Amino acid sequence: MSGSTQQLVGLFPLSYRIGTSAPGAQSLTLNLLVFTPEQSISGTAIVTQAINPPLDLQSDVWGEYTYMTVMSPAVSKILITAQGNHGGPTANTAVNFKLHLVVGSDWKEGVASYQYLNGQSWVSVNNVPAHLNEPVQSRFFPPMGPGPVILPYPPIMPLYAAPIQSAIASGDLAQMKHLAGLAKQQLEQQPQLQSALEAAKGEISRLERR
């Protein structure tokens, strides 16, 4: 991860509320899974607006994130780019959603610009605030926010429990298959993760003895 100040390991969920508080303004809810080994993201986007008839556009989204490192004293940022449709990247459906989201290095606050296809025309919403919602909750595990995920035991359940439960409950076959693929990749990387953890412990001990 060029330009990052720390090595992130694993997969974690994020949920953003994007929009202003102005009456009648559009609102975007962005639910993402961040897969750090590939710097990729996937999830859902829901654009709503209290108009007549009400706007309610839902898309399956996918994309990537990159670190934008700048010279001190400026603050580094993270750029998330995504697109969406009905069914995900393997579905034979047209793209109906595009996003550029810039957040701080802690993933909490930022500014977004997005486009969505409303009937036959594209609608653009530019430079609106983005706020991180409370961490995704699981019935079986405590909440986990974004950040390093390095565990001595298989991380598959705490990392994937809430998203997989949600996909099963919704009956979304494409999303369940996508999450199952990510889970398999995470399990296959477990030996490398354990080795990296041992190396980190050794480096911590060496630095603490100074």
Rank of each mutant, 00 (worst) to 15 (best):
V9M: 11
V9A: 06
L14F: 00
S15N: 12
T20V: 06
T20N: 09
T20G: 06
A25N: 07
S27Q: 02
L28K: 01
L28N: 01
E38W: 07
S40L: 06
I41K: 02
T44E: 15
A45D: 05
T48P: 00
N52D: 15
L55F: 00
L57Y: 08
Q58K: 05
D60A: 04
D60Q: 04
E64K: 02
Y67Q: 14
M71W: 12
I78H: 11
T81N: 01
T81C: 00
H86N: 12
G87Q: 10
A91F: 07
V95A: 05
K98Q: 06
W107S: 06
V111D: 09
S113H: 00
S113E: 00
Y114F: 02
Y116T: 04
N118H: 05
N118D: 15
Q120D: 13
W122L: 05
W122P: 13
W122F: 07
W122E: 11
V128Y: 04
L132G: 10
N133C: 09
P135T: 07
F140E: 14
F141E: 13
P146E: 14
P155A: 12
Y160T: 11
P163L: 02
A169C: 10
M176I: 07
H178T: 15
K184W: 12
S195W: 08
A196V: 08
A196K: 08
E198K: 06
E208N: 10
